[in-house]
């Protein structure tokens, strides 16, 4: 079976630290996998390896069946990424930023379509023509979400995506993730937000010191149990 996102014995050794030790993971289409762990546990390294930003010491990461290290450009047609802190060209408007990143992803949208994506991400209509330099972190995050959604990717890589979003926007984002997974998008989300992880995730994994120590379906966990599990592994 070809998984949308897969890691096989993925290992990353930095000169001073073993960041990831033999990660094995398979994520199917429509699944929302939430990766939990303390800072430095290896969550961002895992995302960087899937993005091809760093090369694995051994093992391999696959996106849609393609090995990331061997197909660095091709895999990016299948994935969208929202970092913890979305940074955009400050002198361009939200609309222009979305237009540029969509063009780079291979989509030439009309302005009305770009407006729809931004609105769908929760950006106020009056803000779309304002320079991004005037945006709050949450507004930039919404443009980042719009960029990811407009890409129609098979995989969504998220690194603390709700950071900076207010509770209402976070909730809307959760709904959006649900909608995307319903359409078959695989979501891989690194987060500290246990509540959000249990709410949107189909599975949660806990990472400690570069090792995926536990993976469970969220359907068998309530919020309290997830918290206990997290504390068990991280303290």
């Amino acid at each position: 079976m070809t998984y949308i996102l897969e890691a096989k014995d993925l290992r990353k050794q930095y000169p001073d630290k073993l960041a990831l030790q033999g990660l094995n993971l398979q994520i199917e289409a429509g699944e929302v996998f939430c990766l939990l762990g303390q800072n430095g546990a290896g969550k961002s390294t895992t995302i960087n390896l899937f993005l091809g930003f760093v090369q694995p010491t051994s093992g391999a990461a696959y996106i849609n069946g393609l090995e990331v290290a061997k197909n660095p450009l091709e895999i990016k047609r299948h994935l969208a990424y929202i970092p913890e802190n979305v940074m955009l060209y400050p002198h361009l408007t939200g609309l222009e930023n979305l237009g540029l990143f969509s063009q780079l992803a291979g989509f030439a949208y009309a302005e009305s379509e770009l407006r729809d994506y931004l609105e769908q991400a929760g950006l106020p209509p009056e803000a779309v023509q304002r320079r991004v330099g005037t945006y709050s972190k949450g507004m930039r995050q919404k443009v980042g979400i719009a960029i990811a959604v407009a890409k129609h990717a098979k995989v969504l890589l998220l690194d603390e995506p709700t950071s900076g979003l207010d509770p209402k926007a976070s909730n809307e984002f959760s709904e959006l993730l649900g909608k995307l997974s319903g359409q078959g998008t695989a979501v891989f989300m690194a987060t500290h937000d246990l509540f959000r992880a249990r709410e949107v995730g189909t599975r949660v994994g806990i990472m400690r010191e570069g090792e995926l120590v536990d993976v469970r379906p969220t359907s068998f966990l309530n919020a309290n149990e997830l918290e206990q599990l997290y504390l068990h592994y991280t303290h």
């Binding site: 970092p83 990143f101 980042g144 960029i147």
Partner: peptide
């Protein structure tokens, strides 16, 4: 910080 989003595109 724009480079991460840029290089996440093809």
């Amino acid at each position: 910080g724009i480079l991460t989003l840029l290089l996440a595109q093809p």
